[in-house]
Measured scan of single mutants.
Amino acid sequence: KLLSSIEQACDICRLKKLKCSKEKPKCAKCLKNNWECRYSPKTKRSPLTRAHLTEVESRLERLE
């Protein structure tokens, strides 16, 4: 599967780190437990900047 097509777990399953069936409108866990089942939009991760990478590398060197 391509990364862009990976389905996201519902908010509660993601928060509780449960295996989500990803069914809509309610996944199996939410249906069974009568929880409100919501699927928040995916958040875009910002790409690493060179400055951040350099900072992490220098912190790693100090720890070694």
Rank of each mutant, 00 (worst) to 15 (best):
K1I: 06
K1E: 02
K1S: 15
L2I: 12
L3R: 09
L3V: 10
S4K: 05
S4Y: 12
S4F: 13
I6D: 07
I6C: 12
I6Q: 12
E7F: 13
E7I: 09
Q8V: 05
A9W: 02
A9E: 00
C10T: 03
C10L: 01
D11V: 11
D11K: 03
C13D: 03
R14C: 02
L15W: 12
L15K: 09
L15Q: 09
K16Y: 01
K16C: 04
L18E: 02
L18C: 10
L18H: 09
L18T: 06
K19L: 06
K19W: 04
K19A: 05
K19F: 01
C20P: 00
C20F: 08
S21W: 04
S21G: 05
E23P: 08
K24L: 14
K24H: 13
K24V: 15
P25T: 08
K26Q: 15
C27G: 02
C27A: 04
C27P: 06
A28C: 10
K29A: 05
C30N: 07
C30F: 06
K32R: 15
K32Y: 09
N33I: 01
N33D: 07
N34M: 14
W35E: 08
W35M: 12
W35Q: 13
C37W: 01
R38E: 15
R38N: 15
Y39F: 09
Y39H: 08
P41F: 01
P41S: 05
K42L: 12
T43R: 05
K44Y: 08
K44C: 10
K44I: 15
K44Q: 15
K44G: 00
K44N: 12
S46Y: 05
P47N: 00
L48A: 00
L48E: 01
R50Q: 06
A51V: 14
A51G: 04
A51S: 08
H52M: 00
L53F: 01
T54H: 04
T54A: 06
E55R: 10
E55C: 13
E55T: 12
E55W: 13
E57G: 00
E57Q: 05
S58V: 13
S58K: 11
R59Y: 01
R59N: 06
R59L: 06
L60W: 01
L60Q: 03
E61L: 14
E61F: 13
E61D: 13
E61H: 12
R62F: 14
R62H: 08
E64H: 10
E64L: 08
